[in-house]
């Protein structure tokens, strides 16, 4: 059984801001049914680019629901510029931490938020830079390198826990290992 904090349990049992926001003017979606978790984030942003309301719909495990609920609580009242700085760690910290196997739930929250902000600003999210590594979960080498450097990851298992990369068919696990080595080597030189 997962060692969830009371805060995770509370946000799963009684999630805040559930459902479709009727007058939302920004939406961000991430994940899919096949992946096993998905999040649709709705924002209502005013003329000063301040988030005056937020809601979510989530398909996934308890920590996915709790992460979504936490995300909406964190960003309500923020300007888009401030919201753009929210990271997956902020979501995890808000919940008193997540089991490391569940960190991808907070990453999903951050990804949906980025997409919602881009949606509001009418910015098209371009094809991701870098080389595709995990096709199951659409993760590039640059994303893996970022995650490794930011979070001090060292094994393929860590990368799967954070980004889900390698958690589907598993064909890319060897490639992930190479990317981790590259990331470590460049980090050492920085």
């Amino acid at each position: 059984m997962w060692d969830y904090t009371d805060k995770v349990k509370e946000h799963f049992m009684n999630p805040k801001n559930v459902g479709e926001l009727k007058d939302a003017n920004a939406v961000g979606e991430t994940g899919s049914l096949n992946c096993g978790d998905a999040l649709k984030l709705f924002l209502k942003v005013n003329e000063n680019e301040r988030i005056i309301d937020a809601s979510f719909m989530t398909f996934g495990c308890a920590s996915a629901v709790a992460s979504s609920s936490a995300l909406t609580e964190i960003i309500k009242g923020m300007t888009l510029d401030d919201a753009a700085k929210v990271t997956n760690d902020d979501i995890s910290d808000f919940l008193g931490g997540l089991p490391k196997e569940k960190m991808h739930c907070s990453v999903m929250g951050q990804a949906a938020l980025k997409k919602a902000i881009a949606d509001f600003r009418g910015v098209e999210i371009l094809a991701k830079p870098g080389e595709m590594v995990c096709e199951c979960f659409d993760v590039t080498d640059l994303e893996i390198i970022d995650a490794v450097k930011q979070n001090g990851l060292s094994t393929t298992e860590d990368v799967t826990n954070y980004l889900k990369a390698g958690g589907g068919c598993g064909k890319c696990l060897d490639r992930i290992e190479e990317v981790i080595e590259t990331a470590k080597a460049t980090a050492d030189n920085e």
Partner: peptide, 11 residues
């Protein structure tokens, strides 16, 4: 029927 025991969410 699914073991969400890591980033691997496969049923």
């Amino acid at each position: 029927g699914s073991a969400c025991t890591s980033g691997s969410l496969d049923p």
